[in-house]
Each structure stands twice: as structure tokens, then as C-alpha cells.
Computed example of a mutant assay.
Amino acid sequence: MDPLTIVGIAAAFAAIFTTMILEGGSPAAIFLLPPLILVFVGTFGAGIAGSLLSDVKASLAALKTAFLGKPPSPDGTVQTLVKLAESARREGLLALESAVQDVDDPFLREGLQSAIDGADPEELREILFAQIDTRRAADKQAAKLFGDMGGYAPTIGIIGTVLGLVHVLENLSKPDQLGHLIAGAFVATLWGILSANVIWLPISNKLKRVSEVQCHQMELVVEGVLAIQSGTSPRVVQQKLQSFLPPQAAQKEAA
């Protein structure tokens, strides 16, 4: 589990509420039901209006990845591929038939099985990279909804403020209530800006980053599978795959 999204959003809210308290305000003052309904329901409605039903389902399912998902470990994958390369070099490619069933990564398992079945290396590369492109496009679409909501939220918040100010103008004959009404009118703008920059845009960015890591991992797997299929030396396989790792992970793997 990677808790940084939860930690980051919680820290941002804590900073906002602490600032309000230090300035003599009360966090309870911004929890007004009408602005909350307008900003959150209105933003979600505007977001899904420009999406397909399948896109919305994928985006909602991706929330679990944003908050609880753990990116794959590339160094662990390198170790697995090197061990498979050693077995293939020692016993032959067909000897990996039984080892394939113990591989947890479905993409790696599928690639190895295709290699064992004798798929042409160039065709196998094209097939696997096509799957990576498809995965990247699906992840991009899942993140897009939250990015769109981050763009709509501030504007919808302004709409809420305008509605609130209209209500203020309707009550100019009640000067004792104007301060409260004006303050309430600006709560919608606050929630629009806050939700966009503290919730929706960070979630979108997290999904994009996780997608980058996962697709990079898949590219590493493709190179490893093709190297195993061609009978490359395990040491060369390790050196080649380490070039895909971030510097710190590569140093750790080499050690």
C-alpha cells in the first residue's frame, strides 16, 4: 500500500483548518450543505457529462488504486526474470513451462507462455507493446475524469457564489443578516478551489504516475521475455534490465 495520497490530502486539509483556527475562524463555518452539494455533485455531474459510462466506471474503480494501490517493484521483477533466464539457459526454454504457473504477474506470465509456445520474437514484441499502449490509454482515460473535475470545480464554485450574492441582494433590507449571507456566498468558491487543488487534481496526477510506473514495468518485462526467448546469458539479461531501473534501484539490484 502507498499511503501518500491519503497522507497528502489529509495534510492539506489539516493546514487549511489550522490556518483558519489561527486566524480566529472555525472550520465548521465552511461546512454548509448547499455549497457542498453544488460543488461536489455539480462537479461530478459536469465531469461525467463529457465521459462515456464505461469511462466513469473505470475512473471510479481506479480510486482504489489512487488511495490504496502499490506500484509494482521493478527490482523484484528483474530478479524473477534473471532466475527464469538461468533456468532457460540451463534446461532449455520448454523447461519454463512449469515455472510459468508460479508467476504472479499476468503480463509476464502471458509473455513467457507465448515465448514457450514458439511465437515469433518480432510478432511477440508487437503484441506485448500493443497491450502496453492499450493499458496506457485506459489509464489516461481513467485519470482524465478527475482532471476534468479539477477544472470544473472552481467555476462551479463561482456559480455558487453568484447564486449566494443574488440571495444577498434580495435581503438588502435586512442589514443585520448581510454579513452572514455574504460569508456564506463565498463558501462555494472556497470549496470549488479547495476540492480542485486538494482532491481532484492530486488524484488525477497520482493515477497518471502509477500508470507510468506500471507501463515502464511492462516494458521491462517485454525486454526480459525476449532476452530469455533468444537464449541471452543471465548476466547480460540482468545488466540489460538494470538499465530500465531508476539509479537507486539499479545500484541496490547490482549490490
Rank of each mutant, 00 (worst) to 15 (best):
M1V: 04
M1H: 08
L4D: 00
I6F: 14
V7F: 12
G8I: 09
F17S: 03
M20S: 08
I21T: 07
I21E: 06
E23R: 09
S26Y: 06
A29M: 15
L33W: 11
P35H: 15
L36W: 11
L36P: 04
T43S: 15
G45D: 08
G45I: 01
G47S: 11
I48G: 06
G50Q: 07
S51V: 01
L53D: 11
S54Y: 03
S54N: 08
D55Q: 09
V56C: 04
V56N: 07
S59K: 00
L60P: 00
L60V: 15
A61T: 12
P72W: 04
S73I: 07
D75C: 00
D75F: 02
T80S: 08
T80H: 05
K83L: 08
E86Y: 04
S87N: 14
R90H: 06
L93D: 07
L93M: 08
L94I: 10
L96R: 01
L96T: 08
E97D: 09
Q101W: 09
G111C: 03
L112A: 02
I116A: 02
A119P: 00
P121A: 05
P121Q: 12
E126V: 12
E126N: 11
E126I: 09
E126K: 15
L128T: 10
L128A: 11
Q131S: 13
R135G: 05
D139H: 08
A143C: 02
M149V: 09
G150S: 13
A153W: 00
P154F: 01
I156K: 06
G157L: 09
G157T: 13
I159P: 10
I159S: 10
G160H: 14
V162D: 12
G164L: 02
L165P: 04
L169I: 11
S173K: 02
G179K: 05
H180W: 01
H180P: 00
A183D: 09
A185Q: 11
A185C: 03
V187I: 15
V187N: 03
A188V: 06
A188S: 14
T189C: 13
W191K: 04
W191S: 12
W191Y: 07
L194F: 11
N197S: 14
N197P: 03
N197G: 12
W200K: 01
L201P: 11
P202D: 07
N205T: 15
L207W: 13
E212H: 14
E212D: 15
V213M: 15
Q214M: 03
E219R: 14
L220G: 10
V221K: 09
V221H: 00
L226I: 10
A227F: 09
Q229E: 07
G231W: 07
T232G: 06
T232A: 07
S233R: 13
R235C: 04
R235E: 05
V236N: 13
Q238I: 03
Q242D: 12
S243I: 12
L245D: 05
L245V: 01
P246D: 15
Q248E: 15
A250M: 03
K252F: 07
A254S: 07
A255Y: 02
